[in-house]
Design a protein around this nucleic acid. Sequence first.
DNA 1: CAGGATCCGTTCGGATACTG
DNA 2: CAGTATCCGAACGGATCCTG
Lengths: 111, 111
Amino acid sequence: MTDSRLPECGVARFLTLLNGPWATLIVRELLHGPHRFNQLREALPGISPHTLTSRLRQFERHGIVTRTTYAQIPPRVEYELTPLGEGLRDVLEAMGTWAMDVPDPAADVTV
Amino acid sequence: MTDSRLPECGVARFLTLLNGPWATLIVRELLHGPHRFNQLREALPGISPHTLTSRLRQFERHGIVTRTTYAQIPPRVEYELTPLGEGLRDVLEAMGTWAMDVPDPAADVTV
DNA sequence: CAGGATCCGTTCGGATACTG
DNA sequence: CAGTATCCGAACGGATCCTG
């Protein structure tokens, strides 16, 4: 579908910005404050460095997070939400509270 | 990652319920009222019947939409949001309004 | 410690053709 | 009209190894 899906729709834009299952999870973690790379890895069990880097870089490009490097040995890099990224707090909260009200259908074979 | 990602987190649950780029778009369309199958197809340029059926069926299982069949020729089937699905209105709106405030970075090669 | 490079598997979705 | 069946391609993510 490339990206031709209803561009006038904010929801579609949101999905482009936070695509992939890990995106929102990472943001959610950053809502707790600045994190270092490995801090995020520990907070997100199962995520690979590849994926984490990928999402983080994308967030940078969109101005959702900032990357701060401290020139020291060993290296230290911190990721922090920008005010724009902070704005996601209410959105993620809305998503979360809604989802928790959905009963569990138990079986979910999907497709 | 299967599904072992922070089950206690509502956001993760949300992503499981509305997975895939089309999911939220379909719900958004249904917020305008009941739709027939082909009505949704027309409203969502580019979606394939395969995908649409897949998402719709998933929504049914989760109690987000209802499927009503009218025994007539030609067949007539209507999809409608349940009260649970209606609850997504505020969530999608929050997503949309946030996303529209994000400036366009122009280049977005992703990964 | 932070992350780039590769290779590969899974999933989601598109295309097409065919039914009740 | 409203799907279903099949095949296939693209994207996202995991695993592993290596580097500044």
